[in-house]
Amino acid sequence: MSLRDRLTALIAAGGPISVAQYMTACLHDPNDGYYATRPAIGEDGDFITAPMISQMFGELIGVWAAAAWELMGQPDTLRLIEMGPGDGTLMDDILRTLRHAPGFLEAADVWLVETSPPLRALQADRLGERVRWAATLAEIPDGAPLILVANELLDCLPARQFVRTAIGWAEQVVGLDGEGELAFGLAATPVGALLPDAAPGQVFEQSAAQAALGAELGARIAADGGAALLIDYGRAEPGFGDTLQALRRHEKVDPLWNPGEADLTVHADFPAVMAAARAEGCEAALLTQTDFLARMGIGARAEALVRAAPRRSGTIGRQLTRLIGADEMGELFKVCALHSPDWTPPAFENLSVLEDA
């Protein structure tokens, strides 16, 4: 039985499900979920991420990690962690760069947090015995400071959607239409009084999973020290909007089309993630991807690559524009740093951090 058929039967028997429940099933169902069975990343897949666009992205994350380690006092033991590592390209570029940071790799215990069997296989092919795997952050031993990176992880965490109607808030749910097909609808919600005021028609998204990750990282960093770098597309301030989308072959498709066959995402809610981390005793700051990469020296790195390979100057220029252009990834994508209160990570010095919502 297909995932669509199983979801249809589930809804027919028990009523509509939340958008968050639908996302979880589509992405992580062990038999038919997108990431569990058929993730397709890259030019020939469904979507492409920054590490695949240019080596410069991963190299600068590696430079950031090395500089952060130095600011931490170069601890002898360190957990270097990537959550949601895709096909392993980002960690490969990070580790290659960190070979130029004397002592770092000797101190670092390298972990990947990954639940997808197909992606673990790709990571193993690329990275071999240089890394270890865990299904959750909690499985990685504590007791040592961490440097953690997560690129395009938050957007894959499920969110509920609430719609302001003329008479109050309702939750957007996935149910069945008159012909028994999956369809969006509205259901009464007991949490309406807790939601912000808005005009009719506005959509408010709330991701308990994103906030929970912020809290988990905040508690871990507050206890053991270190920093986390969360990179994703999303909002820098609380706001409204329906950001649920499904991608198939780099094109948007109906989120209800063939559950499990497309990647489903929502925008990262950085204010909620940062507030949850701060509540656990961690500090937080936010930059656009443009500002972060510029502060880390992407312009100089691009010039060096062009000098080494002049024939690739056009390609390198296009890659640079894709990563930092205001109409490309540069403004929509944000870089969030969660860190111990006693120091500030590279690129985030002298910032006015985002105020709690």
Results as ranks from 00 to 15, higher is better:
residue 5 D to I: 10
residue 8 T to A: 14
residue 9 A to S: 15
residue 10 L to F: 05
residue 14 G to M: 09
residue 15 G to M: 11
residue 19 V to N: 03
residue 20 A to I: 03
residue 21 Q to S: 15
residue 23 M to Y: 03
residue 24 T to H: 15
residue 30 P to W: 08
residue 30 P to V: 10
residue 32 D to I: 01
residue 32 D to V: 02
residue 33 G to H: 02
residue 33 G to Q: 02
residue 34 Y to C: 03
residue 35 Y to D: 01
residue 36 A to S: 14
residue 39 P to R: 05
residue 40 A to L: 13
residue 40 A to H: 07
residue 40 A to D: 05
residue 44 D to R: 14
residue 48 I to R: 10
residue 51 P to K: 12
residue 52 M to S: 12
residue 59 E to Y: 02
residue 61 I to H: 05
residue 62 G to A: 13
residue 63 V to R: 15
residue 63 V to F: 06
residue 65 A to E: 00
residue 66 A to R: 11
residue 67 A to T: 07
residue 71 L to E: 06
residue 80 L to C: 12
residue 80 L to K: 10
residue 86 G to P: 02
residue 87 D to Q: 12
residue 88 G to D: 05
residue 89 T to I: 15
residue 90 L to K: 06
residue 92 D to L: 14
residue 94 I to M: 15
residue 96 R to F: 07
residue 96 R to I: 07
residue 104 F to D: 02
residue 110 V to I: 15
residue 114 E to A: 09
residue 115 T to P: 01
residue 118 P to E: 01
residue 118 P to D: 03
residue 120 R to N: 00
residue 121 A to D: 10
residue 122 L to Q: 14
residue 125 D to G: 14
residue 127 L to F: 09
residue 127 L to A: 08
residue 129 E to Y: 08
residue 130 R to P: 03
residue 138 A to S: 14
residue 143 G to H: 12
residue 144 A to S: 15
residue 145 P to T: 09
residue 148 L to H: 11
residue 150 A to I: 05
residue 152 E to A: 09
residue 152 E to M: 11
residue 152 E to T: 08
residue 154 L to Q: 06
residue 163 V to P: 00
residue 163 V to G: 00
residue 165 T to F: 00
residue 168 G to D: 02
residue 173 V to M: 12
residue 177 D to C: 15
residue 178 G to W: 08
residue 180 G to Q: 10
residue 181 E to M: 12
residue 181 E to T: 11
residue 184 F to N: 03
residue 189 T to K: 08
residue 189 T to Q: 09
residue 195 L to M: 07
residue 197 D to C: 13
residue 197 D to N: 13
residue 198 A to F: 04
residue 199 A to H: 13
residue 199 A to Q: 14
residue 202 Q to P: 00
residue 204 F to V: 02
residue 206 Q to K: 09
residue 208 A to T: 08
residue 209 A to P: 00
residue 212 A to V: 04
residue 215 A to F: 10
residue 216 E to H: 08
residue 220 R to E: 00
residue 222 A to R: 06
residue 225 G to W: 13
residue 225 G to I: 05
residue 227 A to D: 02
residue 232 D to N: 13
residue 232 D to H: 13
residue 234 G to K: 08
residue 234 G to R: 06
residue 234 G to F: 04
residue 234 G to Q: 04
residue 235 R to K: 14
residue 235 R to T: 13
residue 237 E to N: 11
residue 241 G to P: 12
residue 245 Q to Y: 07
residue 245 Q to S: 06
residue 249 R to F: 12
residue 250 H to Q: 07
residue 253 V to S: 14
residue 253 V to A: 15
residue 260 G to L: 01
residue 266 V to R: 01
residue 269 D to P: 11
residue 271 P to D: 00
residue 272 A to I: 10
residue 273 V to C: 09
residue 274 M to C: 15
residue 275 A to H: 05
residue 276 A to Q: 05
residue 279 A to W: 02
residue 279 A to H: 10
residue 280 E to Y: 05
residue 286 L to R: 08
residue 287 L to F: 07
residue 293 L to Q: 00
residue 293 L to M: 12
residue 295 R to E: 00
residue 295 R to P: 00
residue 300 A to P: 01
residue 303 E to G: 11
residue 312 R to C: 03
residue 315 T to W: 11
residue 317 G to Y: 07
residue 318 R to Q: 13
residue 319 Q to P: 07
residue 321 T to E: 13
residue 322 R to V: 13
residue 326 A to F: 09
residue 326 A to E: 11
residue 330 G to N: 03
residue 332 L to P: 05
residue 335 V to W: 00
residue 339 H to E: 00
residue 343 W to V: 02
residue 347 A to L: 14
residue 351 L to S: 10
residue 351 L to N: 10
residue 356 D to W: 04
